[in-house]
Design a protein around this nucleic acid. Structure first.
Lengths: 127, 127
DNA sequence: CTTGACGGCGTACAATTGAACGCTATGATG
DNA sequence: CATCATAGCGTTCAATTGTACGCCGTCAAG
């Protein structure tokens, strides 16, 4: 059960692109990044290598490039990151997190409405 | 407008205690930490000093101890941290974050109900 | 074939983070 | 008063993170 090291923030940014593409080379990830992000090829390469080392991606050779692909469901990774954050910022109470958004930060009417829909839907599906 | 450096995770843990107490000495923070956390006095001291350096706390002498107290509203700090996270993990879409909880992670019936209440209340207050 | 571009792999390197030590001043106690 | 514990302040130190460079092999174009 020895946990993988948590992904760093920049790593997550990269991982999300790999998830979106299902699998990708350094170049493909780089092309997918907003240009104003201004990351170097080698930098992206490093992040991908690190994600592999941490166990979030696996790689296999394809031609002269490495193709990286996910080994863990995105939802699971995001879940781990969020749980950790909720634990350290909201005493593990998801509701406190929601409270922050609804009360402190404030949601737009549109967001509120969409959130209601989400809840209705989840309820219908789960009963 | 030069932003304060974001608080690190351990720092936030400490800051939350200061917020809860309204102001605190190293010793008071230490006493408030769960004992299994196992942090040393000096370590807590370091985190408090760092929070001060980053501009989240100010300190003044009281007897032989320093009392640290907040300089920024907790909601604001949490807001900054959350915004950053939502940006890097959900493309800045708060709704995607909610989606993660409602769909992927799943909320208990109780949590759903409480969340609905939050929404109702917010709506009533804001119109 | 030679050359140049591209990519892999190892390495670098400063900043930040997590955690704590040592020296020193000071206030409480025998 | 002498001693001891406590707290401050400056420092340390390894690990992680953000970002990238250099060397080396290979494939494609002249």
């Amino acid at each position: 059960m020895s946990k993988r090291p948590a992904p760093a923030k920049s790593e997550l940014e990269i991982a999300r692109i790999v998830w979106k593409l299902g699998g990708a080379t350094v170049r493909q990830v780089l092309d997918e990044l907003p240009p104003e992000r201004g990351l170097d090829f080698k930098t992206v390469q490093t992040y991908l290598r690190r994600l592999e080392a941490k166990g979030y991606l696996k790689t296999h050779r394809e031609g002269r490039s490495n193709v990286y692909r996910p080994t863990v469901r995105p939802g699971k990774v995001i879940g781990e990151v969020m749980d950790d954050l909720v634990k350290s910022l909201f005493d593990g109470e998801v509701l406190s997190l929601f409270q922050h958004f609804v009360r402190d930060r404030g949601l737009s009417a549109d967001e509120v409405q969409k959130l209601r829909q989400l809840l209705d839907q989840a309820e219908r599906e789960s009963q």
